[in-house]
C-alpha cells in the first residue's frame, strides 16, 4: 500500500484561489455585458485585448524569471478585465495592451507576483494611462453611438442626467462602471459565493455619500456618478491591497470615501476614485498594524 504521508488537516475547503478568481469573473460578467450593450463592439474589443495582454504578460514574465507559470489561477485575467472596464470605450486598443502589461509586470511581477503587489494593479495601470495619455481616457462616447463625443460625463455635468439614467447606465463613462444595476448584481454574486464581505463596499459607498453630501454635492447622484460603486465592489476589495481585519476594512472604506469627496471637490481630476483607492492601498499596511486582533490569553496587544 502506498499512502500519502502528509500532515493534518486532511480535508480542505473547496474555495481555492482559482475558484475565488472565477467567482470574481462571474460577478464581473453582468458589467461586461452591460458595457457591450451600451457601448457596442469597441467595448468588447477593449476588454478582450486587456485580458489577453494581462494574461500573456504574466505568463511571459513568469517564464522569463524562471517561475512556475500560474496564469491558470485567473488572477491576471481578473486584473485585465477590470482594467479593460476602466477604460473609455473610445480608447485605442494599444492603450489596453500597455496598461495590461504595466499592471502585471510592473505593479505585480516586479514586486513578487501574486500577493505581493502594494497597489491594485488594474487601478495603478489606469492611473499610469491617465497621466500618460489623458486625452484618450477622457474622451467619452455617448451611449449606443458610434462617434466620439468628448462630452461631459455626469461628473462634469451633474445636472444633465436623471438618477434613473445614472442607475441604468445610459450615460457616457468607462465601460464597466456605467451600469450601476449590473454592479449591484455583481455585488450580490460576490456576497453569495462568500468571495468578499460587505464591509468595504458598504463603508466606502456610505462614506462617499456622506462626505460628498457634506461638501455640497447631491449625495445620491455623487454615489451613482463615476466609478464609485464599481470601484467599491471590485477594486477596493482586492485581497492583497485591502486590510485583513473587518475593523481595518471599515476604516479603509471610510478613508477612501473621504478622499473621493475631497479629490472631486478640490482636486484637479473630476474622478477621484482612482487616486483615492490607490492612496488607501498604500495606507493598508499601517491600518493593518493598528487593527491587529487581541490574541487569546493576552490582555492587550501581544506582539511588536
Amino acid at each position: 500500500m502506498k499512502l500519502h504521508l502528509t500532515p493534518a488537516p486532511h480535508v480542505h475547503s473547496p474555495q481555492t484561489t482559482r475558484a475565488l478568481m472565477g467567482n470574481v469573473l462571474l460577478a464581473l460578467a453582468p458589467c461586461a455585458v452591460a458595457g457591450v450593450v451600451i457601448f457596442g463592439a469597441p467595448a468588447l474589443v477593449l476588454m478582450a485585448v486587456s485580458v489577453l495582454s494581462a494574461v500573456a504578460g504574466e505568463a511571459c514574465w513568469q517564464r522569463l524569471t524562471g517561475q512556475k507559470v500560474r496564469v491558470n489561477d485567473l488572477s491576471a485575467a481578473v486584473t485585465g478585465l477590470i482594467l479593460g472596464m476602466n477604460l473609455s470605450p473610445r480608447a485605442p486598443w494599444w492603450l489596453a495592451v500597455v496598461g495590461g502589461l504595466f499592471a502585471v509586470v510592473l505593479v505585480k511581477g516586479l514586486f513578487g507576483g501574486l500577493g505581493d503587489n502594494f497597489l491594485n494593479p488594474a487601478l495603478a495601470a489606469r492611473a499610469f494611462l491617465l497621466v500618460s495619455w489623458p486625452r484618450y481616457l477622457t474622451t467619452w462616447a455617448a451611449p449606443l453611438a458610434a462617434d466620439a463625443v468628448s462630452g461631459a460625463t455626469p461628473l462634469a455635468n451633474p445636472s444633465g442626467y436623471t438618477l434613473g439614467q445614472l442607475f441604468l447606465g445610459n450615460i457616457p463613462g468607462s465601460i464597466g462602471e456605467v451600469c450601476k444595476a449590473a454592479v449591484l448584481v455583481g455585488f450580490v454574486i460576490l456576497l453569495c459565493t462568500k468571495t468578499i464581505t460587505w464591509h468595504i463596499p458598504v463603508s466606502l459607498t456610505l462614506s462617499t455619500l456622506v462626505f460628498c453630501g457634506l461638501l455640497g454635492y447631491n449625495p445620491i447622484a455623487a454615489v451613482l456618478s463615476g466609478g464609485v460603486l464599481f470601484a467599491s465592489v471590485f477594486m477596493a476589495t482586492d485581497y492583497v491591497t485591502c486590510p485583513m481585519s473587518t475593523k481595518g476594512q471599515l476604516v479603509y472604506g471610510v478613508g477612501a470615501g473621504l478622499l473621493i469627496a475631497l479629490i472631486r471637490k478640490f482636486g484637479l481630476y473630476p474622478e477621484g476614485v482612482t487616486f483615492a483607492i490607490l492612496l488607501m492601498n498604500v495606507a493598508t499596511p499601517l491600518i493593518d498594524r493598528y487593527t491587529k486582533r487581541r490574541v487569546y490569553g493576552y490582555e492587550k496587544e501581544a506582539k511588536a
Partner: peptide
C-alpha cells in the same frame, strides 16, 4: 510615453 518625463516615470525607469 509622456509620463516617463514626469518624476513618477523617472522613478519607474530608475528603479527598473
Amino acid at each position: 510615453i509622456p509620463s516617463i518625463a514626469l518624476p513618477a516615470g523617472g522613478f519607474l525607469v530608475l528603479g527598473v
